[in-house]
Each structure stands twice: as structure tokens, then as C-alpha cells.
Amino acid sequence: MPINSVVCIKQVPDTSQVRIDPETGSLVRQGIPSVANPYDLYALETALSIRDRHGGFITALSMGPPQAEEVLRKTLGYGADRAVLLSDRAFAGADTLATTYALAAAVEKIAAGSLVANIGSGKGVDIVFCGKQSIDGDTGQVGPGLARRLSFSQLTYVCSLLEVDLKAMRVKAWRQREDGRELLQAQMPVAVTVTEQCSSIRYASLPGLIAAAKKPVEVWSAADLNVERGRLGLKGSPTRVSKIFAPPARQRGEALSGPGKSAGEMAASLFDRLADRGLKIGRRGG
């Protein structure tokens, strides 16, 4: 039985190039290239490999300015079946709460459409995939937020999705924690956020690219969704940025090496300095 999935893809600035202008104190974003959030491509690959095994249908979904169409085009090249962009002034300035509100409404619309078209397992949407976090916002809040809004099971930090059992409507996945890995079994429908430990994205095939070039990226505005406008975008966002500033820059530190210093002396001075800063070598806990 096939699986109907939605993959949430965010277009993000290449964050290694984002800076605070020291003069104006504002964010310099101009001229900085946009990329697909890298974790979202692991999410897409996970969806593609499940479709390889079980068949099904994949919708790539993004909310962002009109340029975000680029990343969705890319997902079609990799093999997504459909691409939907939520783009409207009303969505702008959304924090994670307002983002999940809009994305959840879009997933519901996709689900309703797939029931009509008889796509997937016939349950609407079976799995929503997200990256573990976006590299600009870096919150990891959108995946769990979608799970709650959609009343889906919630599986975060998935490092390997093992098995989809469509008879029992269950998935099994390994979840990465700080102290190890846990194997979880979740009832579908499920929202999954994936880490970089999942497989990296396949190459886009030439036939795939040719087929993709013919597919449209559908653009939906707020009016296309069943939403209250006051809950979208900046208006619907409980958080506000009150200040941005440059982080204290890392300073070039101390050179421990120098003429006439032996490796032993360098090692000793390193651990002396670390001890002064509270890092002591000693008995564990003692």
C-alpha cells in the first residue's frame, strides 16, 4: 500500500555568511545566497526512500517569499511528485507558532485533496517530514508544533526510519538522544523530524529533471487556506525580537608554542591554563 507524505522544506540564507553590520547593528542579508535547509534534504531523502519501497506520493511544502519557489523546483528534480508554496504578505514575520498554524492548514488541504484523488493509503496524509531544525531559526519547534496541531504522533530527532507497516499503520524509527539511541514505534499519521544521520539526498536524475521542469510549483495564498488571518504571520506570533546584536567575537587567544618550547612544556602550560579555568584533571567526580 502506498504512503502519502508531505515534506516541509524551508529556504534559508547560507548562515555562514550572515553578519551583523557593525555600523548599523542590523542584519546583513543582502547578496547572501539562499539554500534549502540542509536537514530538510535528509527529510526529503527519507520520504523518497519510503516511496521507493512502498510507493506513494510526496508533496514538498514550503512557506516563504516567492523566491522560495527555487528550492521547491529542486525538490521536484529529486523526485517529489508535487510542490506547494505558501506565499502571501499575511504569512510574513511568522514565528514558529504562526508557521505551524499555516503549514498545518496546508497539510490539511493536501490531505483533503488526496482523499478525493485517492492518493496514498487513503488516510489523507500518513507522514509529515521536517528537518530536525532550520539553520537560520535553529529552533526545531516546527515539527512538534505540526504534530500537535494535526493530532499526529510526534517523532523527533529520528536518525533512521526503519520500517513502515501499513497494515498496522505504524512506523519504527531510531531516535538520537544525548545519551544514546532509542527505538520507537509510532502510530500513523506521524510527524517525523530527521537528523543528518539519515541518508543524504540522492542525485537528481536527468529524466527526473526533465519531468520536473514541466511540473508547476503551486502557489497558495492565505485565501486558499482555511485560516483566521489574525493567527498568521507577525500578527499571529506571540514572540517578538526586541534586539539583535553581534555575538562577542572570538578573540585570537594565546600562542602556547614558541621558540625553544618543548612539546612537553606546551602540554603542561595548556593543562595549567585549563585548570585555572575550572577544568581539572582528576578523579571522576572526586
Binding site: L97, T139, Q141, T156
Partner: peptide, 23 residues
């Protein structure tokens, strides 16, 4: 801001319809 704290906080903030600042 652990894998579990983030998992729980985002779910709860959504239900409480309030703001959540990560990390």
C-alpha cells in the same frame, strides 16, 4: 534545550498557544 526538553516544550507551547524561545 535537550532533545527531550525541546520535544516537550514545542508541543506544550503549541497547545498553550504561547511563545517559545529555543536554546
Amino acid at each position: 534545550a535537550t532533545t527531550r526538553g525541546r520535544d516537550l516544550a514545542s508541543a506544550a507551547a503549541t497547545e498553550l498557544e504561547t511563545g517559545l524561545t529555543a536554546d
